[in-house]
Design a protein around this nucleic acid. Sequence first.
DNA 1: TCAGTTTTTGGTATCGATACCATTCTTGAT
DNA 2: ATCAAGAATGGTATCGATACCAAAAACTGA
Lengths: 335, 335
Amino acid sequence: MGKGKWVTMKDVADFANVGTITVSRVLRTPDKVSETKRKRVQEAIKELGYVPDNTAGALSSSKSRVFGAIVSTINDSVFAQTLDGLSSTLRMAGYELLLTSTNYDPDVEEDALLALLARRPDGIVLTSTTHTSAVTKLLKSVRIPVVEIWQLPSAPLDIAVGFSNFQAGYDMARHLIDEGRKNVAFLGGGGAEDERGRRRRDGYINALRDVSKEPIMWPDNEQSSLYGIELGAAFIERCFISDPKIDAVMCVSDQVALGVVCEARRCGVKVPEDLAISGFGGFELAKPSGIDLTTIAVPGKEIGIATAKALLDPETARDKKVIDLGFTLIKRGTT
Amino acid sequence: MGKGKWVTMKDVADFANVGTITVSRVLRTPDKVSETKRKRVQEAIKELGYVPDNTAGALSSSKSRVFGAIVSTINDSVFAQTLDGLSSTLRMAGYELLLTSTNYDPDVEEDALLALLARRPDGIVLTSTTHTSAVTKLLKSVRIPVVEIWQLPSAPLDIAVGFSNFQAGYDMARHLIDEGRKNVAFLGGGGAEDERGRRRRDGYINALRDVSKEPIMWPDNEQSSLYGIELGAAFIERCFISDPKIDAVMCVSDQVALGVVCEARRCGVKVPEDLAISGFGGFELAKPSGIDLTTIAVPGKEIGIATAKALLDPETARDKKVIDLGFTLIKRGTT
DNA sequence: TCAGTTTTTGGTATCGATACCATTCTTGAT
DNA sequence: ATCAAGAATGGTATCGATACCAAAAACTGA
């Protein structure tokens, strides 16, 4: 009890007058132990304040009961939902999550992966779908489930959980066109670091081509340092004002759309009469927020939960390989 | 090379014709090995694709090179910044982060802590400062650094890194009063789950008392299910309109403030003439966003970095025990 | 009652690294 | 040339659990 060292399984076994293996069984397969001994052991555990040592267990069973995740950034509310769903589902099953972020740097991904593998995780989650060749090679050589999430890759390494960003972009563009908009612009998504946003933009481009329209994209300069709300605000002033034929803008994210909506209100632009606005992400900008934004709701938490299930039961998940959870286009007041 | 089993240190040693311990030293203390052997070992490592097994290392050295973090929720952009800073700083030092979220449930915290301790982390990070007695007892008995972050506790268990929410609330209230506002309201922060918000509200209450004013708090009903932007939007309609003497509102968060600003614009309320608005959090609602919100910027990332340093060098950190990183009141256009 | 199962239990080897100690090899000073 | 001090290297025990196998106990049906 806190002599500076941890209580070991042997201490518990001696205290309860059983073999160590019996203690182990009480913890892992309680129904294989007689009730008498089970109770005695459980009391001993409580009495001594025993906390099992998983590192030792991992070594001998080669099951770490830990999963590793490499995310581009934690700093994104939709990723965060996924992590929340993932981590809580895993913990209920007795697993933990080892988390690393790369800040969108593929070289970091390689380092991070090596560091994770050194912990011998029972599975790996990746949010990026483009990897260096070293990463791909490593992932193919390990015999653990690898789940790529969010963006569905064309050729999954193992299992993929997510939805099609391309389709999301396509559907939203079609929605705006179907609403009678003549000149639909796309705002954001040009940055090299945002692969998912680019896919949505590709979907938009294809939708416009399908109705023989030329896409209008802003900012055209890929170097633009604006993002989020600021980008949305800048759009009104620097693009919409100077190009008044635009009657709808499809934003790469809800954040951006929020900026557009607020700035439009400030400048007296009527929404949706003068300008229809749509976002992407779908979180808390519904009617009661006063924004009432048309958007695409993404199953962030569901992706986390489905990923956890795939990790815990990879065989079943591999039957499908690609688990498409879809998305929901929510029409609200801004279109 | 992927026969289904991992390459072990012994394989590398045999390949390079050295003892296993030499391989170990090449990885951990390279300058204690002669250059000849070091190079030979490094080549062998690359050749065989050796990835060290940290679970084994942790067992024999009783250093896991993993830190555990228990956060209330990942789903909060300011926490996320901290996690980003924490995780990247730790990884540069060769450590990883084991992450668990409690969803604000103290009972979950206890479970999560036990699960973490089973992994024998080298240190623990907690975002909550109120713990069950079982948790406190456990944390006191372990001989590893425990860092409580964000809200500075009055009696830290070990080390604390953060800032004073009370002071932040106090300072912002004083700012509004100094700007000549007569009736400053506080919006949000009543919920039992949001301890930090409550502290800010306490600071606000004290500031008003100091100038002999009665605090105005909304929603008074603690059960209100509104939060975030929606709460902000609701304030205008349900509180401000019916109580026009209010000339300033101090919001518990930037999210809430954003809702107020947008809804105020929509309803034609002049900001800041009719209503001054302030937020809390300080992220990307500056001038270019079109919102230009007065707020308190919180050193989210710095907290993460300082926490990492404290974990890596607890002795130095314990000299201070409480590391107050402060905050910055940023006056902008809404006040 | 007894052989044949099934259930419960424990002993011992093992996982893959590091700690500790002992040994060998350098190096430099005398 | 010799010895002492220090650097480099390796052998073996060890960390704390689980796997595997074997033994003991309990149960079954004829």
